[in-house]
Lab assay of single mutants.
Amino acid sequence: VFVDDHLLEKVLELNAKGEKRLIKTWSRRSTIVPEMVGHTIAVYNGKQHVPVYITENMVGHKLGEFAP
């Protein structure tokens, strides 16, 4: 499973602090992992960042699938 390192670091850091804030990313190719559930990730679609709230059903899919 591929997840960009910088994105995973941000998610794990927020989980350690117990925070839930918006994470901006250009990494549409990253796979959604269970650690991301409950976070809102702003995924770049080529024009703007689209906020995507991550749920359990999204695990295993790519971030780009949810930012048309």
Rank of each mutant, 00 (worst) to 15 (best):
V1W: 08
V1C: 15
V1E: 15
F2I: 06
F2E: 08
F2A: 06
F2T: 05
F2V: 06
F2S: 05
V3S: 02
V3T: 06
V3L: 04
V3Y: 04
D4H: 04
D4Y: 02
D4L: 02
D4S: 05
D4A: 04
D5Q: 15
D5C: 15
D5A: 15
D5T: 15
H6Q: 14
H6N: 08
H6S: 12
H6P: 04
L7A: 01
L7T: 01
L8P: 01
L8W: 13
L8C: 05
E9V: 09
E9P: 01
E9F: 13
K10T: 15
K10M: 15
K10L: 15
K10Y: 14
V11Q: 00
V11N: 01
V11H: 00
L12Y: 06
L12K: 13
L12Q: 10
L12A: 08
E13R: 09
E13W: 09
L14V: 02
L14H: 04
L14D: 02
N15C: 03
N15T: 04
N15F: 02
N15S: 03
N15V: 04
N15L: 04
A16K: 12
A16P: 01
A16I: 09
A16D: 06
A16G: 08
K17V: 09
K17L: 13
G18Q: 09
G18N: 10
G18R: 07
G18W: 03
G18Y: 04
G18L: 05
G18D: 07
E19T: 08
E19P: 03
E19L: 13
K20Y: 10
K20N: 04
K20D: 03
K20C: 08
R21V: 13
R21K: 12
L22G: 03
L22T: 12
L22S: 06
I23D: 01
I23Y: 01
I23F: 03
I23A: 01
I23G: 01
I23Q: 01
I23E: 01
K24D: 03
K24T: 10
T25D: 01
T25K: 01
T25H: 02
W26P: 05
W26Y: 15
W26C: 15
W26A: 07
W26M: 09
W26D: 06
S27M: 06
R28A: 05
R28P: 03
R28T: 06
R28M: 04
R28H: 05
R29M: 11
R29P: 06
R29G: 09
R29H: 12
R29W: 12
S30I: 02
S30W: 02
S30T: 05
T31M: 10
T31P: 03
T31G: 12
T31L: 06
V33Q: 05
P34H: 11
P34L: 11
P34Q: 12
E35G: 07
E35F: 09
E35I: 14
E35P: 14
M36L: 05
M36D: 00
M36H: 02
V37L: 13
V37I: 14
V37G: 04
V37N: 08
V37A: 09
V37Q: 09
V37H: 06
V37W: 07
G38S: 11
G38E: 08
G38K: 06
H39P: 00
H39C: 03
T40S: 09
T40H: 08
T40P: 01
I41T: 01
I41A: 01
I41C: 02
I41F: 07
I41Q: 00
A42Y: 04
A42F: 04
A42V: 04
A42S: 09
A42I: 02
V43N: 00
V43S: 02
Y44W: 14
N45L: 06
N45I: 06
N45S: 08
N45T: 09
N45D: 13
G46D: 05
G46S: 10
G46E: 06
G46P: 02
G46Q: 08
G46R: 11
Q48M: 15
Q48A: 12
Q48W: 13
Q48H: 12
V50H: 11
V50W: 09
V50G: 03
P51V: 13
P51D: 07
V52T: 09
V52S: 04
V52N: 05
V52E: 01
V52G: 01
Y53T: 10
Y53C: 12
Y53D: 10
I54A: 03
I54C: 13
T55D: 14
T55G: 12
T55A: 12
T55R: 13
E56C: 13
E56Q: 11
E56P: 12
E56N: 14
E56Y: 14
E56D: 12
E56H: 12
E56V: 13
N57V: 14
N57A: 13
N57K: 13
N57F: 11
N57G: 11
M58P: 00
M58W: 04
M58L: 12
M58Y: 11
M58H: 14
M58K: 12
M58F: 08
M58G: 02
V59P: 08
V59Y: 11
V59W: 05
V59R: 08
V59N: 06
V59E: 07
V59I: 14
V59D: 03
G60D: 09
G60P: 02
G60E: 07
G60H: 13
G60R: 07
G60F: 15
G60I: 03
G60W: 15
G60M: 15
H61T: 09
H61L: 13
H61I: 10
K62C: 13
K62L: 12
K62P: 09
K62V: 11
K62T: 12
K62M: 11
K62Y: 08
K62G: 06
K62D: 04
L63R: 00
G64M: 10
G64Y: 13
G64V: 06
E65L: 12
E65F: 12
E65H: 13
F66C: 06
F66W: 09
A67R: 03
A67G: 08
A67S: 14
A67H: 04
P68V: 10
P68A: 12
P68D: 08
